[in-house]
Amino acid sequence: MSTEPALTLTERRKAATQLDIARAAAELFAERGPDGTTAEEIAHRAGVALRTFYRYFRNKQDAVAPLLAGGADRWRARLAATEPGTVPLAEALERSVADALSVPDATAAEGLRWTRGLLRAADGDPALRAVWYRANQESEERLRPVLAALAGEGADPLEIRLAAAAATDAIRVALEAWAPTEAPPGEVAALAVRCLRELTGGMRLFSRR
C-alpha cells in the first residue's frame, strides 16, 4: 500500500541535487557551525552554482531540510507497506518506528549521524531549529493519510490526527534526547518506541484489535 505517488525523472534529479546541497550544508555546519558557514561555501562544497542553491533554498539553514525529511519519508514508506488488517495498528506503528531508526547498514548509520550533528548545531541556532520543527510538522501531516488507510473506514479523524502527532513527537523527542549524548545509534530505536508507548498508551485507536 502506498499513499504517495512516484516521482518523475525530473523530480528525482531535482531531489538528488537538493540532497547533495543538504549534505554539504550538514558537513559544513558540523565543521564550522551555522554562523561560520555561508551559502556560497555550501554551494561550492556541493559543486553547484550559487544561483542553483537559491533556486532551491531561501537560506543556508533551509538547505538541510531534505536531509531531515529523508528519514521521515523512509519511515512512512515502511508503515505504508503494511497490509491493512494484518497486524494491530499499534504493533505496525511500533515496528515501523523501530525499523526506521535501527542501524542495519552504513546508510542508516550515516543518516543518524547527520541528524545528530544537525540537532547539536541547532541547539544554538533558532533558524536551524525552525527548519527541524517544520520538517516534523510536515511529516506529521503526511502521516495522517497513512494512518487513516491502516485504521480503516470509520476511524475518528481526531484520533488519526492525535496518533500522527504522537508518533511524530515520539521520534522527535527520542532524537532530541539522544543527540547531545554519546550513546550509540542503536539506542535510538528503543528510546523512540518507549516514547511512542508513553504517548499513545491511552488512545482508543490503539486499543482496537
Rank of each mutant, 00 (worst) to 15 (best):
E4I: 14
A151V: 08
E141Y: 14
A190H: 00
A108L: 02
V48I: 09
L101A: 04
Y54S: 08
L112M: 02
R194Q: 03
T17A: 02
Q18T: 08
R194C: 06
I42R: 01
Q61P: 09
V64L: 03
L93Q: 05
A155C: 12
T3H: 12
A100G: 10
H44L: 08
G152N: 13
A39K: 03
P88T: 08
A16I: 06
A170L: 07
A26K: 07
A43E: 00
A108Q: 01
A166H: 08
E94F: 05
V64H: 01
A81L: 14
L19R: 11
S139F: 12
R45F: 15
T8L: 12
S102Y: 12
M1H: 13
R208T: 13
R74T: 11
L150M: 06
L50C: 07
E140D: 04
R161N: 15
I42A: 02
R74K: 10
A24C: 12
A109D: 07
P88K: 02
P104N: 10
L28K: 10
S96T: 09
E91M: 04
A122N: 05
L143I: 05
V103T: 14
A72W: 10
P126Y: 05
V48C: 08
P180A: 04
R120L: 04
M1K: 11
E110I: 05
G85E: 07
T115E: 01
A167L: 14
T115P: 03
D123L: 11
R120P: 00
R78Q: 14
V48P: 07
